[in-house]
Write a protein that binds this DNA or RNA. Structure first.
Length: 480
RNA sequence: GGCGGGGUAGCCAAGUGGUAAGGCACGGCUCUGCAAAAGCUGCAUUCGUCGGUUCGAUUCCGACCCUCGCCUCCA
């Protein structure tokens, strides 16, 4: 049996996955979740689908995963929208949070075990900042905010720049330096606690440093360590988060010095690549900016979106296209057809066959899939295994070589694979009565060999969105 | 400017120092009243360009072109 190997952004190589847990079973995994200021777009969901795939695969591999995903519900953009809309923070973020969870379900992503909200962890955040302060790594600036001192952090023997090679002397100074940043001692320092300003309205909390709110990175450090402990196995996110967000998380978390000696804050960092849409960077101005709901409105299904998002390796930029969604639909129906035939065949098994104990008929399928996924979650290679299996299964069915018992075994294998891929059942092909009436009318026409009329009815059904397949057991209607 | 990914058939996308997975689309055949589905079959002498190393490179090295990302809020 091969080992699961993952590309670790810390080491920049693919390495064996070995969790901290001495028994090797328990895994702590933190995924950077949404900032709930708007509906999530398809790019966000590529990352969340990637997180879900990772979790599902770990579980498939027998690990006991604790999956944490944060919800950032206080942040500059949110505060601005709250001010503009006149809603309360809770009202505003609540709506987008529900929408986010709904979208996750649409894409059949497993619900994380913990969904901590930044605003529920203010005491833990304050506590963490105080620890940094007591170690001399955090300082108060004249504007009342608290910043993280990278210089002092380095002075403690810690390393800043673990995820990204950054030469601060070569760095371009951002043109937009907001006024409060003049208070920092050094440009690279970042805010841990932001002092309240009038624009914040009712969004503030009391703290030892006066009223204010948490900086952007601190909530992830506070929440992940609160739930998973100061040192845990996996941290996932989009590639853009590597710097500064993840780098700063490491700095805050290791700067507080809570880890057991010799242990890092996080052992494996995984970063998912972005996607392009129709070959271009997604942008509202280009008209290629899609939310999950936009695609649903265009008639696509969640499973089709999921399939497409998970069709490429997570570290490669992926080109998401509407044409790709159409192709996804076709590819899925190929799988659906195969499974449907297997199920039909499986129900024909006799009672004595049912009594037979063995179910493991296609271990090679599961093994080949596992080998593909063990190699840094190479899901594209995994799909190739799936489609090879579909073809081989279709062939066996077509040549009547497959016994009902063997069909059952294959379905059993599929269930194992699908626990990772997470393809939900397709929408029901339950046709409404008027459609069924047309189907019946066509059958009558066919019986009297009035093919002209039969074909006309078929064309009409097609127009209504239904396809007819004549099988040995009579006509079958399917959604087009 | 610094750093880091990419460029593989009409589209999407794996992969390897030894001669190119898989999906979609497309063509032919079988089956069918005709279709559909399924099966069989065809579809990259070639992996951005030019050099180099090698018995042999798409895979390693160098240069160049193009593209994406990070360095600033961002999945």
């Amino acid at each position: 049996m091969s080992k699961l190997r993952l590309f670790n952004s810390l080491s920049r190589v693919v390495q064996d996955f070995e969790p901290f847990d001495p028994t090797g079973r328990k895994v702590g995994m933190y995924c950077c979740g949404p900032t709930v200021y708007d509906f999530g777009h398809i790019g966000n969901f590529r990352t969340f689908a990637f997180s879900d795939l990772t979790r599902r695969y770990l579980e498939f591999r027998g690990y006991e995963v604790t999956h944490v995903m944060n919800v950032t519900d206080v942040e500059d953009k949110i505060i601005r929208r709250v001010r503009e809309t006149g809603k309360t923070l809770q009202e505003y973020t609540g709506n987008y949070k529900s929408a986010f969870l709904e979208d996750l379900r649409t894409l059949n992503c497993s619900s994380p075990h913990h969904l901590p909200h930044a605003t529920d962890y203010i005491p833990a955040i304050i506590d963490l900042i105080q620890k940094l302060e007591s170690r001399g790594i955090a300082y108060r600036a004249p504007d009342g905010s608290v910043y993280f001192s990278i210089q002092n952090y380095r002075g403690c023997g810690c390393r800043y720049g673990q995820l990204v090679n950054l030469n601060f002397d070569e760095m371009r100074v951002g043109e937009r330096i907001s006024s409060d940043e003049y208070a920092k001692e050094s440009l690279a320092d970042f805010a841990l606690w932001k002092a309240r300003i009038p624009e914040d309205g009712a969004v503030f909390w009391d703290s030892p440093w006066g009223q204010g709110r948490p900086g952007w990175h601190i909530e992830c450090s506070a929440m992940s360590m609160s739930i998973l402990g100061p040192s845990f196995d996996l941290h996932l996110g989009g590639e853009d988060l590597a710097f500064p967000h993840h780098e700063d998380e490491i700095a805050q978390s290791e700067g507080a010095g809570l880890q057991p000696p010799g242990r890092p804050f996080v052992k494996y960092w995984l970063h998912g690549a972005h996607l392009l849409v129709e070959g271009k960077k997604m942008a509202k101005s280009l008209g290629n900016f899609y939310t999950v709901r936009d695609l649903l409105d265009q008639g696509f299904q969640g499973r089709e979106i999921r399939y497409l998002l998970l069709s490429a390796h997570y570290r490669e930029t992926f080109n998401f296209t509407l044409e790709g969604l159409e192709a996804a639909r076709q590819a899925l129906s190929r799988i659906d057809e195969c499974l449907e035939k297997l199920r039909e065949l499986a129900t024909q098994s006799s009672s004595e066959e049912n009594a037979a104990p063995s179910l493991a008929a296609s271990p090679s399928f599961v093994d080949a899939f596992t080998a593909a996924m063990d190699n840094d979650l190479n899901v594209a290679a995994g799909w190739a295994v799936v489609f090879d299996w579909v073809r081989e299964t279709n062939r066996a069915i077509a040549s009547l070589e497959l016994s009902p018992m063997a069909a059952k075994a294959r379905l059993h294998s599929w269930d194992q694979i699908n626990s990772v891929l997470g393809l939900s059942a397709k929408l029901s092909d339950q046709a409404p009565p008027e459609v069924l009436a047309l189907v019946e009318a066509r059958t009558v026409a066919k019986r009297s060999r009035d093919f002209t009329r039969a074909d006309a009815i078929r064309a009409e059904l097609n127009h209504l969105g239904w396809l007819i397949e004549d099988t040995a057991k009579g006509p079958k209607v399917k959604r087009r």
